[in-house]
Every structure is written in structure tokens, then in C-alpha cells.
Design a binder for these strands. Structure first.
Length: 334
DNA sequence: CAAACGTGGCC
DNA sequence: TGGCCAAGTTT
């Protein structure tokens, strides 16, 4: 088993030579920029995040500007990125930091982790990237790297394996050069120790890698047993008046929370015409969406308790809509 | 602790 | 084409 001092030294030198040094959030790596990037990067690839990050920082350059923004504008900027609770949590975080810490960031790991939307990984990332201080991280990249390098068996999401991985992270994280070390871990996982076709011949840890030596690179980390995802049918209402479309704001919880959308109906309407349909696969179910139209516009369209509005097609760009709903509207609005 | 929570890219 | 994967957190 490679010694921590050796491990750190190798990660640092590899990162300097082969790591990523031009990611937008690295320059400058202020606490706010690191927070925004880390939240956006949760379960989301770097290439996808970059344009969102640039737009976000232009519109919300400071914690205060984000705290002052309307939820609709926050959601509009996040639209298309997915996992929308992240957007609401990010604004909650801004307001929390302004209210609780006078707009500053706390320094202690446990205090950082008390920020809305910030879990153990993100807290460690902020410590490492923003402060260049000790902050262990275990994300998908580190998980893959550690499971292979140390030959960790078992499904990583189980508490036993998860605990072992965090223990390794704590033990192998140095007390200096943390920014470069953390970046090196992520870069190793993202560019060499990848899920498919890892580049073991280029890996600086090839000599020490348990998985490589035992021919188990493709077996580690242990895959989680997959379960079949269910199918659901959703009914949506297309209500058009000239060049305007009727929209409702979705609830604070559940799928597409806090976005605007074609109104979703509880069941198939009896007095409507089927306009079209589309399929959409989420991480946890398949949606068979049916789009219905009414031939006559009712006078009382409002579902009680929900915000609603008529929106011009030309104005939809600045409204946060679910990606497949936006796609459907674009394909059927002319 | 399992489930909820999005979307786009890749092979 | 369909399953897998991506800088996880919350409930």
C-alpha cells in the first residue's frame, strides 16, 4: 500500500504536468465562485457546466446579488442543468451567508457543511479549492481512483464502503498544497482513471494499483445492482391564445420543482383533443407525456394555489422551463 | 437508508 | 438503441 507522503507527492507532480489548469472557476478561486461551481458540478459534467457557470457569474457576480435575485430569475438561469433543488439551495445559501455570516464564508469544515446544499464532499472541496487548506473529498472520481488503487471491494454507496473511502481520504489528504492536491485527484479520475477505458499505461500509480495488478480494473469499483425504472404517464395542457401560451409554476417539491411548465393534469381530460406526445427518461422513471388542447379557451383556467401566466412565445427564453417541455414547445409553436 | 432528484453525452 | 455515467445532497 502506497504511503500517504508518496501518494501526495505523486498526485502533486502529476497534476502540475497533466492536470486541468484553465477551468473557469479556478481563476480566481474565490469561495463564492468555488461554491457555485461545486454545486453546478454535482452529478454534472464539466463541459456541461462551463457555459452555465459563465452566465451565472455574469448575472450574479456576488453573494449579495444572488441573495437579492428573484427565484424566477435564478431558475431561468439554471434551466436545462437539471436537479433544480440545487438552484434553490444555492440562493438559500446566499441568503444564509448574508444573514448569518455577514456575507462572508465560514472557515470551519462543519460550518461550511451547514450551508444549504453543501454536503461533506462540497465542504471539503470549498476548503481545498477556496482556502487551499485541509479538506478531504470523496466524489465519483476519488471513489473510482481509491477503489482501484487500494482494491476496495463492495458497493461504494453502502455505509461500510463509504466510511472506508472517507477514512482513506482523510488519511491521504495533506496539510498543504490542498488546492492542487484536490484538483489532482479529480483530474486523475476524470482523465485517466475513468469509468470506461481507463488509461492505466499513463497512470502514475500503475505500479501500486491493486486493481491493475489483479486484473480487476473493470470490476472496481463494484457496480451497484441496477433496478428497473417504472413508467409513468403525464398529462399536460396546451392552452394557446394567439402567440401566447398558458403556463403554471410547478410546486416547490417533486420533479421540475419551481419551474414554469405547461399545466400538468391529474388525469387524462375528457373534453380535450390529443395534440401530441413525447417520451422522457429521468434518472428514476420514464415519462410518457401526453399533450392536450382545448378547442375553446375556458374563462377560469387557474388551478388554485398555483401561480400562472400567459407568456408570449418570444419571451420563453427567459423563463425557466423543463428541458423536454421547452423542446416540445419549440417544435410545435410554428 | 433507499429513494428522489435532470439532462446530455457516449458507446 | 438503451444503459451507464457525471465535482452529491436531502429527506
Amino acid at each position: 500500500m502506497i504511503q500517504p507522503k508518496n501518494f501526495v507527492k505523486t498526485v502533486l507532480s502529476w497534476q502540475a504536468a497533466h492536470g486541468r489548469h484553465q477551468l473557469p472557476w479556478q481563476h480566481p478561486a474565490t469561495p463564492y465562485r468555488v461554491l457555485v461551481s461545486e454545486i453546478m458540478l454535482q452529478q454534472t459534467q464539466v463541459a456541461t457546466v462551463i457555459p452555465y457557470f459563465e452566465r451565472w457569474m455574469t448575472r450574479f457576480p456576488t453573494l449579495q446579488s444572488l441573495a437579492d435575485a428573484s427565484e424566477d430569475e435564478v431558475m431561468a438561469l439554471w434551466q436545462g442543468l437539471g436537479y433544480y433543488s440545487r438552484a434553490r439551495n444555492l440562493q438559500k445559501a446566499a441568503r444564509f451567508l448574508v444573514d448569518t455570516y455577514n456575507g462572508e464564508f465560514p472557515q470551519e469544515l462543519t460550518d461550511i457543511q451547514s450551508i444549504p446544499g453543501v454536503g461533506r464532499y462540497t465542504a471539503g472541496a470549498i476548503k481545498s479549492f477556496a482556502y487551499d487548506e485541509y479538506g478531504p473529498i470523496v466524489d465519483g472520481n476519488v471513489r473510482r481512483l481509491f477503489c482501484r488503487l487500494f482494491g476496495v471491494e463492495g458497493v461504494p454507496s453502502t455505509s461500510k464502503v463509504d466510511k472506508a473511502l472517507w477514512q482513506l481520504a482523510e488519511d491521504y489528504t495533506p496539510n498543504q498544497n490542498n488546492r492542487r492536491f484536490a484538483q489532482g485527484l479529480l483530474d486523475l479520475g476524470a482523465t485517466l482513471c475513468t469509468a470506461r477505458n481507463p488509461k492505466c499505461t499513463e497512470c502514475p500509480f500503475a505500479d501500486h494499483c491493486v486493481a491493475l495488478h489483479t486484473g480487476r480494473v473493470s470490476e472496481l469499483p463494484t457496480a451497484k445492482p441496477k433496478k428497473t425504472i417504472p413508467k409513468r404517464t403525464g398529462h399536460f395542457l396546451w392552452l394557446q391564445k394567439d402567440s401566447e401560451l398558458y403556463l403554471e409554476k410547478r410546486p416547490e417539491h417533486g420533479i421540475w420543482a419551481s419551474l414554469w411548465s405547461l399545466p400538468e393534469l391529474g388525469e387524462a381530460p375528457t373534453n380535450a383533443t390529443l395534440k401530441g406526445s413525447f417520451q422522457h427518461t429521468f434518472s428514476h422513471y420514464k415519462l410518457d407525456a401526453k399533450i392536450w388542447t382545448l378547442t375553446t379557451i375556458p374563462n377560469d383556467t387557474v388551478a388554485e394555489g398555483k401561480a400562472d401566466k400567459w407568456a408570449a412565445f418570444d419571451d420563453l427564453t427567459d423563463i425557466g422551463l423543463p428541458a423536454p417541455i421547452r423542446k416540445y414547445i419549440e417544435q410545435h409553436s410554428r
